[in-house]
Design a protein around this nucleic acid. Sequence first.
DNA 1: ATAAGCACCGTAGTATGGTACGGAGTCAAG
DNA 2: CTTGACTCCGTACCATACTACGGTGCTTAT
Lengths: 138, 138
Amino acid sequence: MNSLTVGKLAKIVGINLETVRYYERIGLLPKPERTESGYRLYGNKDVKRLLFIAKAKELGFTLKEIKELLNLKIESKGTCGDVKKIAMNKISDIENKIKDLTRIKNVLQKLIAHCINEEITTDDCPILEAIEMDFNKE
Amino acid sequence: MNSLTVGKLAKIVGINLETVRYYERIGLLPKPERTESGYRLYGNKDVKRLLFIAKAKELGFTLKEIKELLNLKIESKGTCGDVKKIAMNKISDIENKIKDLTRIKNVLQKLIAHCINEEITTDDCPILEAIEMDFNKE
DNA sequence: ATAAGCACCGTAGTATGGTACGGAGTCAAG
DNA sequence: CTTGACTCCGTACCATACTACGGTGCTTAT
């Protein structure tokens, strides 16, 4: 089950081997089993965890925030009530992100929609002001 | 109209004054007007631009990517067709981000939903495995 | 008219998130 | 039984995105 060396794990997930060690150092990855000779041994759980980390990073979460997200399921002291509170905060953060992304997306779509004549230079593309016009309405 | 000094601009937007200068250096903010004595003068457009930058950063865009987004409306060579292509790519990036965020949100909501007994310690909270279970489907 | 409070500039330092290096030990194939 | 690929570890270096510093000049309120 836990049969992946650090190099293989890194390759599967598509990250640098040194990054895996780095994540371990900062406590983002749990300390893995070791072989007799001291080699790290990883399993499926680690693959999933690293994939989660990669996604969450792309979404603008810092490693610290990702740690918090992951600790929501690992944290062993405190009650479900605590987890609930933290999770609810995370959810509202996420909802705000989705709202902002949607807004940017809408502006880009409007921009495309108005670029009907493909040969007009962008200088004359009237929608290029859309970002400013739209972005700050709630 | 353009009546803000760099310090006032920074205060309005809620960022460090040095950051404004930094953004100018890397070309993320246009070079502003100057007073006779060389003081920078900013206007409303700059406020909006900085607010956009701040949002986009939170959403996981790098400064380089933000520059690209902003250049979609500033770029003066190339056709609307080019803008369209770039914008469409950005839209699909954004859609992916929204998908991933939604997935994480769903997991968190499930986690909350199953935390009915507020006094059970998190060790026993059965949903704490949800992140792993859910995250990698589609 | 003078001192407090900004702004100017270049340069240096910091935090985060990696990435590389190098000398030594381990493993697996020929 | 050795050679090549992989691992170990600590440390050093890197890019990105700021943030601070410090000497000097401007501006404004008393």
